[in-house]
Write a protein that binds this DNA or RNA. Structure first.
Lengths: 142, 142
DNA sequence: TAATTTACTTATCAAATGATAATTAAAGAG
DNA sequence: CTCTTTAATTATCATTTGATAAGTAAATTA
């Protein structure tokens, strides 16, 4: 077995995951928002609240562009901005009720397609997958 | 442990992988090509040759846009097109020498950053990761 | 062999995204 | 109290990407 196996496996894996993610999330995004806006909402759905700077860092969107997209999302009533009471330069962004609802729906659809995709897997397989995700999370993303 | 653990782990994992992939591949793409063009070359680097239709399917780019980007890549001498001798409607796309070189360099950089990222992992950890990638590949992407 | 389908191309337009410069307002440092 | 830094915004422009309509040429089908 070659020493470089891990890297090649990783590359192949990443390509596959990219494809599957696209498959799972297609049709999940409402037409009323753009892909970048969806990625912002998705990030918010997972970690709330965040500041515009944090979003900018995590999603690799420049501050001016982050600001523009957040304004558009606010105009669509999908997010809310709150000033930090300690440092009034900082703003905290969170999903609005409406935004939360939109993302709940999106995730429900994704989740349904996800489970359909692994419906053939036995309970032991599922445990194996959980463990595998943990292992990679630990060594690769720590 | 909740029944939905796999899905949540999967979502968190996907977000992490997305972030890491961005980190690994940033600076890998030469300024002379656009992100979409890079994704085409990347796909070619992994599976060669492919037809424009296959590229269109795999990368979710419409045929007209695929055609346009392939033309641009050909103008930059990064790919070559060959007609199928049996069915002259079909074209096979492969990297040119120059394109192969560009992708070799890109992958070398990515690989270096990848190994730096897991340099703390023991040989056993690496084996665990390989196994984990195989497990997920098998159950999730089959 | 005429009609249809497939693979791909060209042209064009609109929308989304990226990049830069300049500005505001608050906080922190000297 | 001034100077500098930080967080975010506004305005503007170029580029990239997406979407659609129309067209060509080869293969397939009826």
């Amino acid at each position: 077995m070659d020493h470089n196996d891990v890297f090649y496996k990783f590359v192949a894996f990443t390509a596959s995951l990219h494809r599957v993610t696209h498959e799972l999330t297609k049709d999940a995004r409402p037409d009323s928002i753009t892909p970048v806006q969806y990625s912002i909402l998705e990030h918010l759905a997972v970690s709330q609240p965040v500041t515009p700077s944090q979003l900018s860092d995590c999603l690799y969107i420049s501050m001016p562009n982050t600001s523009r997209e957040l304004r558009k999302l606010a105009e669509k009533h999908l997010i809310e901005k709150v000033e930090d009471s300690e440092d009034r330069r900082k703003h905290y962004i969170r999903l609005s009720k409406e935004g939360q609802l939109m993302m709940d729906e999106a995730f429900a659809g994704i989740q349904a397609r996800f489970y359909k995709r692994i419906e053939h897997a036995s309970p032991e397989d599922v445990e194996d997958m959980k463990h595998a995700l943990d292992v990679l999370q630990k060594h690769l993303f720590k």
